[in-house]
């Protein structure tokens, strides 16, 4: 029995990775849920918005590096992030103007908007490939570890190591900051309340003199900012590969639905629920069982990592079966 080492192992292999992955999903799901709440459709282009925005951030990062600007231990990408967000927002607002606004004015069926978002997805996907290619790209400069395994072992004298990468720490910090700012904005500011009012009751919001186009523009900008942030953090944490951002769409949708589409708090909770389930189910628990005095035969891995998307899917199905409005009562059905 070695509870201390078991705890460290759980922290190192489950809690930290799941928390940072959950934070990335939460930011993505927040964007999906905001767009759903205001524009009333599931945006299939969200994954590719993340990819496109991240590609822009990488380009700006390279540019900054080329002229010799960096942030020391912190990745230069963080400095490039606001520029990437601004550029990507301009593009996304352009798609709203040229694509979505038409269907919004016509009050088209949501599924037509979903279809239109597929078209936008194709274009963004192609643009991403065009500007940065399809290869895997690493763009995390600066220090790699906040706490490395060797350091941790030296400090604690435990046999089990623990590492905290800079990208993980930054992910958690940036996500906390973004959520704090967003929720403060939604609950305190006039524009944020107008957004909630519009999401709650579009017609009454119009009667109250809220300008729908302003609300929609604001929503796109916020959702894009969250998406590009999520994409950049994900890319720093793992690496950048355009196709991965299409695949992350499923866990993001699952997170948003679990939390209740249209409910921002739910999206954050959903992101962590999906991430923790995914990591817990695909992690081989053998090592931890060993520390606790068991000698299992197998790896004690419930599902191989190739099937991690199955976890989001199962969560999605369970929620649709038992509580289609999500855990936090979103709109919908």
């Amino acid at each position: 029995m070695d509870i201390l080492n078991a705890l460290v192992a759980i922290l190192n292999f489950v809690v930290i990775p799941a928390a940072s992955y959950g934070a990335q999903l939460a930011l993505g799901a927040l964007g999906v849920t905001l767009i759903y709440g205001i524009l009333r459709f599931s945006n299939f282009a969200h994954g590719d918005t993340m990819a496109f925005g991240t590609a822009l951030v990488i380009l700006v990062t390279w540019g900054l590096q080329a002229i010799g600007i960096d942030l020391g231990p912190v990745p230069t990408a963080l400095l490039a992030l606001p520029i990437g967000i601004a550029l990507c927002s301009v593009f996304v607002l352009g798609t709203d103007r040229t694509v979505y606004r038409f269907y919004r004015r016509k009050r088209s069926d949501p599924i037509i908007l979903v279809m239109a978002s597929v078209g936008v997805m194709f274009i963004m996907n192609g643009l991403t490939r065009l500007v940065i290619g399809v290869d895997e790209i690493r763009f995390d400069d600066g220090a790699r570890f906040l706490v490395s395994v060797q350091q941790f072992r030296a400090w604690t004298g435990l046999s089990e190591g623990l590492s905290l990468r800079v990208s993980q720490a930054i992910t958690l910090a940036v996500t906390a900051l973004a959520c704090w700012a967003l929720f403060r904005f939604l609950s305190r500011s006039r524009a944020g309340k107008a957004m909630r009012a519009y999401s709650d009751n579009e017609d009454l919001a119009l009667l109250s003199g809220i300008d729908p186009e302003r609300v929609v523009r604001l929503t796109w900008i916020i959702a894009t900012a969250l998406a590009v942030t999520a994409g950049t953090l994900y890319g720093l944490d793992k690496s950048f590969k355009a196709f991965n951002y299409f695949q992350i769409l499923l866990p993001i949708f699952a997170a948003a639905i679990v939390g209740g589409l249209g409910n921002p708090l739910g999206a954050v909770a959903g992101g962590f629920i999906v991430a923790f389930s995914e990591v817990a189910v695909t992690y081989p628990w053998k090592k931890i069982a060993n520390y606790l005095g068991f000698q299992p035969e197998g790896l004690l891995q419930l599902l191989s990592t190739e099937y991690k998307f199955a976890v989001s899917f199962v969560i999605l199905i369970v929620v649709l079966l038992f509580r289609p409005t999500g855990l936090f009562r979103g709109k919908s059905v």
């Binding site: 599931s42 299939f44 949501p110 599924i111 499923l250 998307f309 199955a310 899917f313 199905i317 649709l320």
Partner: peptide, 20 residues
């Protein structure tokens, strides 16, 4: 359920079948 839900659920089953 909502029309988007089928789209999302099928997106999931598609990825899973291919993964299998």
């Amino acid at each position: 359920l909502r029309s988007d839900y089928l789209a999302i659920a099928t997106l999931g089953i598609g990825e899973i079948i291919v993964a299998v």
